[in-house]
């Protein structure tokens, strides 16, 4: 099986696959039925994107189920555990804002990712809207929800620097401009939600970095074990 590990479809497909898996972990555990359905729908959109992207890079099943941890190129942000609902919303806010800006840019080009980006950017706009609505409700809600939303935003902040490190093969993306637009959007929504933009480093040797090079955080191994277990135990299993 030929795999094109150099294509940018691999890191972007891994982002979608791993976040989809994390969101799927909410099935049966979400705080209200509507959120159960919402998070599963968002996970399904991301899984659809992952299938298209990984198929551009090789065989989707082999890539998802038979790679080792160091071969995955996803951002460390998307592999972070769900935490409480606020952590999941903070992760969704940071990531979907980034993904929407990135896909909107890729959709305007004529690269191999353009058709998928043009299609998916409309779905991701709903994901971002969902995260923003919850950020507003939790931030500008009770003292308890405000405290927990701020805690979640602060905890995941150190994984946001990696979002803007250039991805090999995406040479036309203006990363610093993307970072500025992302920061402006996040700042605006956090201000409306009466929350503070976290302080502290977003990048550097002592913070996040390395998911794109295959360096992952400790919870990722357990995620992979669960995701790959069935396929590895029963090769070729089908429904």
């Amino acid at each position: 099986m030929t795999q094109r590990t150099a294509t940018p479809a691999l890191p972007l497909g891994d982002d979608a696959l791993i976040l989809s898996h994390r969101l799927g972990e909410w099935a049966g555990n979400a705080p209200v039925l509507e959120e159960e359905v919402a998070l599963a729908n968002i996970a399904l959109d991301l899984l659809g994107q992952a299938r298209v992207l990984l198929s551009l890079a090789g065989d989707e099943d082999e890539l998802a189920y038979l790679r080792e941890e160091r071969q995955f190129r996803n951002l460390q942000l998307v592999e972070q555990p769900n935490g409480d609902f606020a952590h999941t919303i903070a992760r969704q806010l940071y990531f979907s804002t980034y993904q929407e800006l990135l896909y909107a840019h890729l959709a305007t080009g004529d690269g191999e990712l353009a058709p998928l980006a043009a299609k998916a950017v409309k779905e991701v706009a709903y994901h971002r809207d969902h995260a923003e609505q919850w950020t507003l409700r939790l931030g500008d809600g009770t003292d308890e929800s405000h405290t927990r939303m701020q805690r979640a935003l602060d905890a995941l902040w150190r994984f946001t620097g990696e979002l803007f490190e250039p991805v090999e093969g995406l040479d036309t993306v203006p990363w610093p401009a993307l970072y500025d637009r992302w920061t402006a959007r996040i700042t605006a929504i956090l201000e409306r939600a009466t929350l503070s933009v976290p302080e502290g480093p977003q990048r550097g040797a002592w913070t996040a970095g390395g998911g794109r090079q295959g360096l992952h955080t400790e919870p990722f191994g357990r995620l992979l074990a669960e995701m790959q277990h069935l396929h590895r135990s029963h090769p070729g299993a089908t429904w």
Binding site: E34, V37, N41, Y126, Q133
Partner: peptide, 13 residues
Amino acid sequence: LLSRFSSTACKAL
């Protein structure tokens, strides 16, 4: 609006 997501990806409740 009750929920932006519903029984399938294409619907809201």
